[in-house]
């Protein structure tokens, strides 16, 4: 008797799975023919660790995306290689609109330039929208002798290579910022890459690095511990209205880390359009915009077309800069 019950249970479970498995695959084929989209849950891949900025942003969007798209949106993580592993997987996925991934600029531009085999090419990242900017700024501890960018540059000129600037990673937004500042001000700094924004901030607060090229969300977090000398945005940053831009101070430096979402290359434009609409609605949501600003991000709303153009434009700028850096390294 007991045996029978056991057998029954097992076979029911097995059956349930086979049905569930078949169900999803048939729906899949339908979607490709008639573009009834979306008809099943969508996977939203974060190519970074859980709890990071990209994750927080996606978690913020998740409930609204589910509301606008009418399907569950599952967030999963494929971290590694500064995002490269996740993007390499993205471009190999079936372009059916059920797999999308967050992407970051300048990462998707610099990684394929720098690495022999990053696993993807910049043009394979098929953007749906860009919704957030993290602006890079230069910060020093509160007790630092430098009160303005001018002080800082003067000191760097007096003793080339003696001022340490911490930042997250090599050839990332903060590193590019430092390189541009060195070039335009004609100074030499000692950039120290850390394994993320948090350790870089920690090193600045602990006085282990003299300055930090930091993300705006970290810069707004410590008003009583750090001084922000300049910020690399076009206009003054709303969350830090008293901080002058780099441009105001005579340096044409605009560096930000831009976050967006992309689908595999070759995705049906109708599908892209649907996703784009949902993301744009969220990006223009006043409530979401206010939250982002409070967290130290700049809300933006670029649609697929604009995003594509923006990536192309940035690619040109960064490729140029990368070539110069590489040439200097060889000397």
């Amino acid at each position: 008797m007991k045996k029978l019950k056991y057998l029954l249970l097992a076979s029911i479970l097995l059956l349930a799975f086979l049905v569930a498995g078949c169900g999803s695959s048939t729906k899949d084929q339908k979607a490709e023919k008639k573009v009834e989209y979306p008809t099943k849950p969508i996977t939203y891949v974060i190519p970074f660790d859980a709890g990071g900025q990209s994750d927080i942003e996606a978690r913020r969007q998740q409930p609204l995306l589910e509301k606008y798209l009418g399907q569950p949106v599952t967030i999963t993580y494929k971290p590694g290689g500064g995002g490269a592993v996740g993007w390499a997987e993205l471009v190999k996925q079936k372009p059916d609109g059920y797999y999308m991934a967050g992407f970051n600029i300048p990462h998707i531009i610099l990684q394929p330039l720098e690495r022999k085999d990053a696993g993807y090419k910049t043009e394979e990242i098929n953007p749906v929208a860009i919704f957030q900017k993290t602006i890079i700024g230069l910060a020093v501890p509160k007790n630092s002798p430098y009160n303005t960018l001018e002080d800082f540059i003067k000191a760097a000129k007096a003793k080339p290579g003696s001022i340490t600037v911490g930042g997250s990673g090599t050839l990332t937004g903060p590193h590019l910022f430092t390189l541009l500042l060195e070039k335009q001000a004609g100074i030499k700094l000692q950039y120290i890459p850390f394994t993320g924004a948090a350790p870089a901030t920690q090193a600045l607060l602990g006085g282990h690095s003299q300055a930090m090229a930091g993300n705006s969300d970290d810069l707004v977090k410590y008003p009583d511990k750090i001084k922000v000398l300049g910020i690399a945005s076009a206009d003054r940053f709303k969350a830090l209205p008293d901080v002058p831009t780099m441009k105001e101070q005579g340096y044409d430096i605009q560096v930000s880390v831009d976050r967006g979402v992309a689908v595999p290359p070759g995705t049906d434009p109708v599908i892209v359009k649907k996703l784009e609409e949902a993301f744009m609605k969220i990006a223009n949501d006043e409530n979401i915009k206010a939250q982002m600003l409070k967290d130290g991000f700049e809300p933006v709303a670029m649609n697929a077309e604009q995003s594509k153009k923006y990536i192309e434009e940035r690619t040109k700028v960064f490729t140029e800069l990368y070539k110069q850096v590489a040439a200097e390294k060889k000397q």
Binding site: Y6, A10, L14, F17
Partner: peptide, 19 residues
């Protein structure tokens, strides 16, 4: 049958609960 039950059980835990 045991294998089917185990596989199914962990499928639920991993796929449906922990996505």
């Amino acid at each position: 049958l045991i294998s089917a039950a185990v596989t199914a059980g962990f499928y639920i835990v991993f796929y449906h609960i922990f996505t």
